[in-house]
Design a protein around this nucleic acid. Structure first.
Lengths: 209, 209
DNA sequence: CGTATGCTCAAACGATCGTTTGAACCGGCC
DNA sequence: GGCCGGTTCAAACGATCGTTTGAGCATACG
């Protein structure tokens, strides 16, 4: 069914991670089998268990490889604006949104955002716990800054709005990079335009009266 | 692993549909096996293929049973306000949101919203086509009314915002009914409060300058 | 009563799943 | 050369998947 190996460069581990990203995005974690995956990567079936231990560990490694860099970028961007007296909501939201869209610059990064949106919709407990323990501090720092900039909102009200905005952004980012652009719009301009779209939408959703 | 039959009332078909809703919400379409499903429903394994033909047809029937009623309610509510000169954005959004939260009144309805959110995140082509051909006209009617009430927005801009709002609402509705309420808040009051939350958020996201 | 019909049941089918095994291969080091 | 840790390979393991089968049961109708 799957024809030819898709990836034939890089180390075995990297080929597996790349193919996993593609197939997890297309068919989900259960739907993508290790046989399809290793065939697409051009490696032996046993290589997954040899290098990662199990399929579940491979899933975690797919997340870790991207989220370590993504959340580090977000925290660096947040640190530049957090706590300052003239910081705006736009600044904080850009710190959250822009790194994700820059990750989507290349195809495999865009595929990963699809994987992330899937994990977000699945209320799988083990995966949620993995994400919470490893990257929960990032959302906590952003939430604290939102609370500082929106003092008129009660805590339940703020959490409500953050939850809604996060849902919208995750959905939107999972589609970014998938759609075809007009030929005369550069990748950079398209990304900047999308960042502004999402930031303005998120500002409206967070700060409406 | 799954202990006792969960459902022991109603016809075989209804017991299967109820158990399918629960297990699809918990483990996804691939993750829930027909053996777990029929055991939870308290029916024989072969009953699924006898009554529905295949697992895929069962999935479609789970959607059809709920979405026929849900989208009919939405269209009825929309018809009451669409086209009128004094209709507001709030009215249209309530016509979209309230039927979904009323469906979530009982537990199984709330479970179905989780199933719907899963299908929304999975970019599965066959399922998307099923939803598009059977219920695409509903979203088309709502989109037309949004366009009427927001004439200052270009078409691409409007589609952008509708997509973002839909993502946020789908995510939020999939969580409604799952969370514990304070003991002193009635079900009715909680739902009305949630409707107002979501409507105000959606208005802000659609109509911001 | 006999039979037809709709449904349920235990059992089995072939396919595919994640994982394990043990031999083969490979570079570098004594 | 001889050996050795790291890696790849084909093959097989047991488990579980969706689906099919044919006998068994119940109810209704002549």
């Amino acid at each position: 069914m799957d024809g030819f190996p898709v990836n034939s460069s890089g180390s075995t581990k990297e080929r597996i991670l790349g193919a996993a990203e593609l197939l997890f995005a297309q068919r989900g974690f259960d739907g993508a089998s290790l046989r399809q995956l290793t065939a697409a990567a051009g490696v032996n079936l046993a290589a997954v268990n040899y290098h990662f231990g199990s399929k579940e560990k491979l899933v975690e490694e797919v997340f870790r490889r991207r989220l370590d860099a993504l959340n580090e970028s977000r925290l660096v961007a947040l640190a530049k604006v957090a706590g300052a007296p003239d910081t705006t909501l736009e600044d904080v939201l850009e710190a959250y949104i822009r790194p994700a869209l820059e990750l989507s610059h290349d195809n495999s990064g865009a595929l990963f955002m699809r994987v992330l949106a899937r994990a977000f919709a699945e209320h799988d407990d083990s995966l949620r716990q993995f994400l919470s323990t490893n990257y929960g501090h990032v959302m906590r720092q952003f939430t604290a800054e939102f609370a500082r900039l929106l003092p008129q909102l009660s805590k339940p009200e703020l959490y409500w709005r953050i939850d809604l905005v996060t849902g919208a952004l995750t959905h939107a980012m999972s589609g970014f990079g998938m759609i075809q652009r007009k030929g005369d719009v550069s990748e950079h301009a398209h990304r900047e335009q999308t960042v502004q779209h999402l930031v303005r939408f998120a500002v409206a959703g967070l700060s409406h009266p």
